[in-house]
Structures are given as structure tokens and as C-alpha cells.
């Protein structure tokens, strides 16, 4: 396939991908009556009232702040625990390594609701209910295994000779790991950070159950848009548009790490 055709196909796909998001943007700029009143390809009478409401009402914007705090905590915890674990799985052979590696993932295999009661009891005992760290730790349940899996894949792609050469050159292990090894797998670190952020950001069940007011996430606030007069579609769409923004910023910041691949000869 020549490169022009490639680009055309890709752009066609991206247009399809953006259509539902465009429709959400379209809805967010209309009042509820306009949305339900009739079909329009673009807002005929655009209004920012939905966005104004979210950005000025504390019960709305505090949800974004809470979500961002616990999601950031979770991403950092997941990365820092998963990096050494993934290195061990990729470099050392020990009894049952393959099995332990696979069983890590079983945390993701049961419906999340199964884990709710244990988490609730544990956090009640430690007075952690309604704190950001409670949600951040609960999300490690599914994010740490994911991070270990993704990172291990990238680490196993790096030839072992690089480790050995670094030792011969007199690098200590921590220095080798931070200065040589992590830069080599930064595409993997970037994609892992994004996935941890993403899965923690959209998770609703734990985040809603383990918090009440102080750490209430945005996804839970959004379930309240149902009122006596029915769903406020415009407000919900505006909140949806705003939930995309932080994650889009994250991928914007890690994009260079994702795009720069492996460069041999750095050691």
C-alpha cells in the first residue's frame, strides 16, 4: 500500500472514531429542550450554560479534582511497583515464575463487585473510607497486574546482552536500571502510564462505593444528572467532554516516549 492510500484509510477511520465524540460536543452546547426537540447536525443556538454550571458549581468541579488526585496517585504507585516486578519476571527464572505471572492477572477476571465487601471492611477498619489513597490503592488491584504485563513484554524485547555490557562497564544495578534500562523501554513506560491512568479514570464501582463526599469522583457525580424531569443530556454531555481533557493531556505528554522507539547503540 502506498503512503497516500494509507493516510486516507487512517483519516477515514479517525473520522468515524470522532463522530460519537462530535455528537457529544454537539449535545453539550445545547439545552436539554434543543437536544430532544429535533435533529440538528450542529448546535443552532449554541450555549455554554452546561459548561458554566460544571465549572462554577463546587459539587461538580470538585469531582474532577478528586478524580485527578487519586488517579495520579494510582498511576505512580502502579508504575513504581510494577517496574521492578516486571524486570524480575523478564530476567530471572525461578520456580513457578510463569504461573505467578499468569495468576497476577486473575485479579481482573472476576466481576469487580466481588471485591467490594472485602475492601469496604478493610478500609473501614483503617479509617480509610472517603480518602483519595483508598481509591488509589483499590485500583491497584487491576492496574498493577496490567502494568507488570505490559512492561514485561517490553523488557523481554531488550536483549540480555545490554544488561551484561552495562555490568562490564561498571554500572551498579540501580544506576543501570534508571539510567540505561528505563530509557530503553520508555515507549512501554509511556503506554503503561496511560493505561493505568485510563483504567483508574473510568472506573466507577470502587470509586463510588469507597467514597462519600471528600473524595467523590467525577464519574459518580455524573450519575446524579438524573432528576425528576428526566436526564439532563446536555449537562451530562458537557461533563463527558470535560472528562476527556485530562487524559488527552496525559497522552500528549507521553506521546514522545511512545513515538521514539528503540535506539540501539545507546550503551
Amino acid at each position: 500500500m502506498n503512503s497516500k492510500l494509507k493516510t486516507a484509510v487512517l483519516i477515514f477511520y479517525f473520522i468515524l472514531l470522532l463522530l460519537p465524540i462530535y455528537w457529544m460536543l454537539n449535545m453539550s452546547l445545547q439545552t436539554n429542550a434543543d437536544i430532544l426537540g429535533g435533529f440538528s447536525l450542529y448546535p443552532s443556538d449554541p450555549t455554554l450554560q452546561n459548561f458554566t454550571k460544571i465549572l462554577t458549581d463546587e459539587s461538580w468541579y470538585s469531582g474532577y479534582i478528586n478524580s485527578m488526585i487519586y488517579v495520579t496517585m494510582n498511576t505512580l504507585i502502579s508504575l513504581f511497583t510494577a517496574l521492578p516486578a516486571a524486570y524480575a519476571f523478564s530476567r530471572y527464572r525461578f520456580i513457578g515464575d510463569k504461573h505467578v505471572f499468569f495468576w497476577l492477572l486473575t485479579n481482573r477476571m472476576a466481576p469487580a463487585a466481588v471485591f467490594l465487601l472485602p475492601f469496604f471492611q478493610l478500609y473501614s477498619t483503617f479509617n480509610l473510607i472517603d480518602t483519595h489513597i483508598a481509591v488509589a490503592l483499590a485500583h491497584c488491584l487491576f492496574n498493577v497486574p496490567l502494568a507488570v504485563w505490559i512492561l514485561e513484554g517490553f523488557m523481554s524485547g531488550i536483549p540480555r546482552e545490554i544488561d551484561e555490557t552495562a555490568y562490564l562497564d561498571g554500572y551498579s544495578f540501580p544506576r543501570f536500571f534508571i539510567m540505561v534500562f528505563i530509557p530503553l523501554i520508555r515507549a512501554g513506560v509511556g503506554v503503561t502510564a496511560f493505561f493505568c491512568f485510563m483504567f483508574s479514570w473510568v472506573e466507577l464501582l470502587f470509586a463510588r462505593t469507597l467514597t462519600t463526599t471528600e473524595a467523590k469522583p467525577i464519574a459518580a457525580t455524573m450519575t446524579r444528572t438524573v432528576s425528576a424531569t428526566g436526564l439532563d443530556w446536555g449537562l451530562l454531555a458537557a461533563a463527558g467532554i470535560l472528562t476527556i481533557v485530562p487524559g488527552a493531556l496525559v497522552i500528549w505528554f507521553v506521546r514522545n516516549h511512545l513515538a521514539k522507539g528503540f535506539a540501539l547503540g545507546r550503551v
Partner: peptide
């Protein structure tokens, strides 16, 4: 973009 929208939304 699609990945970042909460599932219920």
C-alpha cells in the same frame, strides 16, 4: 479519546 470517557457515560 474514546477510552477516556467513563463507561456509564
Amino acid at each position: 479519546l474514546p477510552l477516556l470517557i467513563p463507561w456509564n457515560v
